[in-house]
Measured scan of single mutants.
Amino acid sequence: GKMTGIVKWFNADKGFAFITPDDGSKDVFVHFSAIQNDGYKSLDEGQKVSFTIESGAKGPAAGNVTSL
């Protein structure tokens, strides 16, 4: 299901971020390909987002990341 959280930090050079979920679970890795914005895919620290949890090769990662 959809979860919500806050972007903890975003590394534009490497194209990934971490989200701190609102439910208090541990921070979730985000690859820029999961960001659903049109055009430039970036996130801002402190931004509120919704996302799903996908199981990636290196463990859980956020999918369908959308700005709220």
Rank of each mutant, 00 (worst) to 15 (best):
T20R: 10
F16I: 15
D44N: 12
T4S: 06
D27N: 08
L43H: 02
L43Y: 06
V28W: 05
I53M: 11
G59T: 06
A34G: 07
M3D: 02
K58T: 15
T66S: 10
F29N: 02
K48P: 09
S42K: 10
P21S: 02
G63A: 13
G63H: 11
I6A: 03
E45Y: 12
L43K: 01
T66H: 14
K2E: 11
D27L: 05
K14S: 04
G46C: 09
A57Y: 14
Y40P: 09
S55M: 12
N11R: 04
A61T: 13
G56S: 08
D22H: 04
F51L: 02
A12N: 12
F29G: 02
F32E: 06
E45L: 14
G59N: 13
F16R: 00
T4I: 05
Q36D: 12
G39C: 14
A62D: 14
A62K: 07
S25R: 04
V7M: 03
I6N: 03
I35R: 00
G63Y: 02
K58C: 15
D44V: 13
G63N: 11
L68W: 01
S33I: 07
S67R: 01
F51W: 13
D44I: 14
V30T: 01
L43N: 01
S67T: 05
S25T: 07
K41E: 11
F16S: 02
D23K: 03
G56H: 11
E54C: 14
D13C: 15
G5T: 01
D22Q: 04
I53F: 10
Q36E: 13
S50Y: 12
F29E: 09
G63S: 12
S55A: 10
A12P: 06
D38L: 09
S42C: 15
I19C: 03
S42R: 12
A12S: 08
A62Q: 12
A17C: 11
N64H: 09
N64L: 13
F16D: 01
T20A: 10
D22W: 03
D27C: 13
V30E: 00
Y40D: 10
D38A: 10
E54K: 02
V28F: 10
I53Q: 08
Y40F: 10
A62C: 15
K8A: 06
G1V: 10
F10H: 05
I6S: 05
K2Q: 13
G1E: 11
K2Y: 12
T20I: 09
S25M: 03
T52N: 07
V28H: 03
S25E: 05
A61K: 03
Q47Y: 05
I6R: 05
G63W: 01
T4D: 04
G56F: 06
D44Y: 14
D23E: 03
F18N: 04
E54N: 02
K26P: 08
S42T: 10
G39L: 08
T52A: 09
L43E: 01
T66K: 01
T66D: 15
M3T: 06
F16H: 08
S25C: 06
Q36T: 10
N64F: 07
D23R: 02
D38Y: 07
G46E: 02
H31M: 14
S67E: 14
T66W: 00
A57V: 14
V7R: 00
G1L: 08
G15C: 15
T4P: 01
N11P: 01
G5C: 07
K58P: 15
F51M: 02
E54I: 03
G15Y: 06
G39E: 08
K48F: 09
Y40R: 05
G39K: 06
G46T: 02
F18E: 03
A12Q: 11
D44W: 14
K8S: 06
D38P: 08
K8R: 07
